[in-house]
Design a protein around this nucleic acid. Sequence first.
DNA 1: GCCTGGCACTCGATGCGTAGGAGTGCCAGC
DNA 2: GCTGGCACTCCTACGCATCGAGTGCCAGGC
Lengths: 338, 338
Amino acid sequence: MLSERRLEVLRAIVQDYVGTEEPVGSKALTERHKLGVSPATVRNDMAVLEDEGFIAQPHTSAGRIPTDKGYRLFVDRLAGVKPLSAPERRAIQNFLDSAVDLDDVVGRTVRLLAQLTRQVAVVQYPSLTRSTVRHVELLSLAPARLMLVLITDTGRVEQRMIDCPVPFGDTSLADLRARLNARVVGRRFSDVPLLVQELPESFDLEDRGTVTTVLATLLETLVEETEERLMIGGTANLTRFGHDFPLTIRPVLEALEEQVVLLRLLGEAEDSGMTVRIGHENAHEGLNSTSVVAVGYGSGDEAVAKLGVVGPTRMDYPGTMGAVRAVARYVGQILAES
Amino acid sequence: MLSERRLEVLRAIVQDYVGTEEPVGSKALTERHKLGVSPATVRNDMAVLEDEGFIAQPHTSAGRIPTDKGYRLFVDRLAGVKPLSAPERRAIQNFLDSAVDLDDVVGRTVRLLAQLTRQVAVVQYPSLTRSTVRHVELLSLAPARLMLVLITDTGRVEQRMIDCPVPFGDTSLADLRARLNARVVGRRFSDVPLLVQELPESFDLEDRGTVTTVLATLLETLVEETEERLMIGGTANLTRFGHDFPLTIRPVLEALEEQVVLLRLLGEAEDSGMTVRIGHENAHEGLNSTSVVAVGYGSGDEAVAKLGVVGPTRMDYPGTMGAVRAVARYVGQILAES
DNA sequence: GCCTGGCACTCGATGCGTAGGAGTGCCAGC
DNA sequence: GCTGGCACTCCTACGCATCGAGTGCCAGGC
């Protein structure tokens, strides 16, 4: 077990390193922090911290930098979540309030997060599986061509074209639309398959084929679009990464382009509470020198999607966590209102 | 006027520099290209080319590199458009053919372009103003709450919430929907304002307010969404930019985040034919060390949107132009089919 | 008149050795 | 268990000489 002072030393190292981006030595530490002990003592503490794997030296006779394990301890035990200032909170609310539709909400959220944290922001669109159906619309575009439009309670809209096996009458269409809505409106997407199972049987034989096709498309949409969408922003902040640039930035940019990777990344975050993944804790190799701070957000108690930021392991964790939490909270509010 | 051989020298310089990324000297040139003259002669030619501003030396006693003006001449007079190979063309077609909806088409196009050119790809969604209306749908979500859904011939869907001043009956709704569609389906978005102008007058006094609100929202959607959407990809390719990395890449990433900048960039491109903007020809300062190759694409003869790539001025122009042109052509086909 | 080979010159890149300094580890003393 | 002192390590910066690619210019030849 590490003594209180050693933890304090670790905290000081993390804070200084995050600020200066340079290995921090014992002397500088005692000058900048009121540790109440001499550099020599700090050196001893540092030696212990290094033995335990919390800090490391880039080379002999250089200062120490925190390891992933060191950041982990810092986040878990030494750092709180720094709340945003009142003006910041007001700015967030104002900015998000003027969003006109879901795309706009997500877009603004991304920009906001990127700006607040000065890192790369990732925002997932509200998930379909956890959303509920607000409305299903069927439009006849041509005699044997329908368009299916799915509207979620979070404002997301999905559409699909359907080619019918045989022309479908307007009354049948209205009928199907009404029955479909009666069954699924207000229900969760994940429940829809069961709810519409027996629908075709209640139709005339001649329409049954079309109804089946429509339902098949509906279910297919649910499955396909469960493959979620997301938006990223603030990639320009990657340039503040460090000196050894090209080497680190490349795999990160590549990872950011792979929606699948990002979705898995957010997916790994816990549903409630904030998740921080530091360096090698990230499964994806390209992100081994980054940390991910993610949190779920939603219109009610339950998270409908996640958002977060990706930045260098050397990041301001309390500040980042504060910003991420605050933004998630406000986005949730906006969604609940709409 | 430059002699034929001097043009040939310029072409050789561009080709070599694009390949090696290093200033090219007179000796290397004669070795790699069959110019039929000695290095000394080439040196004289180079001196002339430098006087004319087509090439420059990073410092005395280094080789030459093309200037923006040099690239311009190269593109205009010395380089053709390199067509893609048959397998490449087949691959493009296959890849795009399996797209399921507009988002997918655009997403795939971006990835394709980025991969083919190994640069940053930008694809604009089909424009609303130049599209025609396929369908307008009005849904009643709550007694005094409507949703307006606009569907374009290119498959794009826009939706808006509408809060009605007074509840709106189902029959009135159906009536409005029918009349609205009768007027605007098949028409261009830009013509819509005129076409619906007198619609409110034909409604009962009690509904007129709502009708006016709906139309106002419709027109507002047309205007707002003329502010186009676009998708970018291949940002990881920025890491191949050059040695002086952080300095160049930063402003580019920033510019890429500004949708407005990108839209203006594409907007500046001519409607038909390919546009190449080299270095300082780009209005945006951050893109002064990049070139933009853009071209319009569309389902018919007319361009409904544009796409292109952003890369270092030192790029393979013939290859890039070939890829951009080919992709635009195939995307146009896909849109025409759907 | 244009091309060519020769030649002196420039100037960045490379390598090396030295000086400087930040930081460490260890030890003896309090 | 903390502290000051001290020797040691090793990275960084700097100056300097070397090297060589590439140039510009010039005199001679086709």
